[in-house]
Design a protein around this nucleic acid. Structure first.
Lengths: 205, 205, 205, 205
DNA sequence: CAGTAATCGAGACGGTACGTCGTGTCTTATA
DNA sequence: TATAAGACACGACGTACCGTCTCGATTACTG
């Protein structure tokens, strides 16, 4: 725990430009929003970032890995403070998901990344750790708080709840391409909490 | 006057080969399963189908449109007969979804199609009518039967239920790439029906 | 010598349309003039002639053979009546060549046909009999008349003279793409006849 | 300041491979000889040269431009030293033309290039400067020497003489596809010089 | 005057080459 | 050693023509 954990810092030759990284990731997000996944080209990202292709390839092996890192910056901001009750925690989490899934960058990237990852285990691992897990954290922590409050109890499967929350919203927003309004969210959370509440009576799921 | 209003009967020139269509769609599904979406090439589909590239392009403008039609044949087979109760109807529907989502063709194609459709309204319409709607029918019809049986009542939002069912499974199987077992399905249907049952008490969602 | 020498005239079934032949050859010449050799397509010839591709292919095996026949109609009109002297016969023949070589059809077709014929003996034979020989006849007949008049005598090589006349004009008009004016023609015929006249003195070539 | 005014010295990025140029042009000549003009494909040239198609297209816009440059290397070698008299200069020049026109590369390319150039002014300019002019130089220089020797005099039209020499040989060898033997050449040069000699008597052409 | 057979327009078909685009690697000179 | 610039090998793309084929519909001779 000395801080610079990895700290290889082999400082022979010219050091890598930190500005380049920032510019490349920003350009990637901008072009994802403008052009979508299929029409996003490495060459154009480099050009937009004011960087040579070489510089980009020295950092990321290809388009998918680049986009994972670009999107990771957005997903790492997900955070839900304690809202006092499971209901309000749920509403807050769902709200954050919706905001994120409605960004054009996300629309362009998330399903495409998942599709690419189907055949590529190393990519799948990156998507998992940088995109999926940050989302799961919200559900996990809210559930912990609900347990602590005594709102739920018993053996539970947080992953099922996570799939139900994110899956429903992904299906609605990304797969079907339809917007979500307040009414939809209210009903969704209502059915969801009703289901979870029932569990308490029947002794856990 | 039975409904085949179109009556094309365009008898000018050599008619299109029905065998070609069949062979192309079969080759597409086979190669999707073998190679995945990204490594699926039009040229190889044509070669596998024993057909010239031109013949394929005369029917479909590109990879995505071809794959929609190829997958449509699988999704059109979705069907759930009356199982006697909402619980059994739900289990049957979920079972069909799971079987379909676990096919390698589906793993390769579904998310990729949804991703491509993001920027292409005409593709989105095709995906909607040939892939999404056939899935929705199962939920819709099961819900109608449940209403007829008196298991549920009141104004409802079938689309929300549909998003919850398919979204959850898509998230689990396709996005996270994890398998579903009996225990997962049991818990899932249990939470779901608990949520829906609660609605009856509270007078609809 | 029964007249209809070949006379296969197997008259079973619908006879071929004579109008089609005419229309196809005319369309070929028109499109040669408009588009040149490389951009002349069989499909467009057929369309312009108001005829199906099948109809065209039933008569000619390919572009080159079609164009030979189309051009043959122009070259078959070459004719030089007796002008009374070798000088005037030569001027008349050269004038006819120049007129023909300056037609856009000829510019488009003649060199291309000769180039195609390089690898195709059967095409070469057709070009020879339908394009080259009709040109050669002018020189041959004029030379015969000159002999009869006593303007020349001795063993001669009409083919050399033919090469010199047509070759010079082809090089000027088709290969270099430069126009010929009166002055050029006068000097050309002057040098040519001077050379031939010299032969008489030296006893034939 | 020796004349290399252009001084490109564009030292940005990886320089173009000189080996690629050489290999492409050599492959072009080889395949011209093997396959002829019509069956020469860019893809095969690239493959034979061990080069990607892109590399070829970066240098030449199409088949015709490539072939002009490939042939230019052959035509640039034309050279006739002073043979002491117009007769011997003429024989030497004609011999060089004949050797060049009888190469299979030339048979395949020259007429095809001239035909293509018919519709393409920029191609015509290239053919002119890289194929026609190098041939013309032989006639021009021989004529200059003949003037210096006093063998000819007066205003002359070198281009007419050039057309007569090259045109005759092109017509014989390329258009009619017939070989030239010693007898033909002797008669040809004899008639030609007789014609030119006559000019001296009559005071120029 | 019905039968028969080759033609016709139309357009789908298998095939080949095209010229372009994107990828990820490389080779320069410069920093 | 990293960088900008750009050439490079590779492979897929979607298009264009080719020459063949399969249709239904004509159009003449033939029996």
């Amino acid at each position: 725990m000395d801080g610079t954990a990895a700290a290889p810092a082999r400082t022979r030759g010219r050091p890598r430009s930190a500005r380049a990284d920032t510019a490349i990731l920003a350009a990637t997000r901008a072009l994802l929003a403008e052009r979508g996944w299929a029409d996003l080209t490495i060459a154009e990202v480099a050009a937009r970032a004011g960087v040579a292709k070489t510089t980009l390839y020295r950092r990321w092996p290809g388009k998918a890995d680049l986009v994972v890192d670009a999107m990771a910056e957005l997903f790492s901001r997900l955070e839900v403070a304690d809202r006092g009750s499971m209901l309000h925690d749920a509403l807050a989490a769902v709200g954050q998901y919706v905001d994120l899934l409605q960004l054009p960058e996300t629309q362009a990237a998330l399903l495409a990344l998942a599709a690419e990852a189907d055949r590529d285990p190393s990519l799948r691992a990156k998507v998992r750790s940088q995109v999926i897990d940050p989302q799961r954290r919200l559900v996990y922590e809210a559930w912990e708080r609900a347990c602590a409050r005594g709102e739920v109890e018993g053996e539970t499967d947080v992953d099922l709840i996570f799939d139900m929350i994110c899956g429903t919203l992904v299906h609605r927003i990304l797969i079907k391409g339809e917007p979500v309004d307040e009414a939809y969210l209210t009903r969704f959370v209502s059915v969801l909490l009703a289901g979870l509440a029932q569990l308490r009576m029947s002794g856990g799921i």
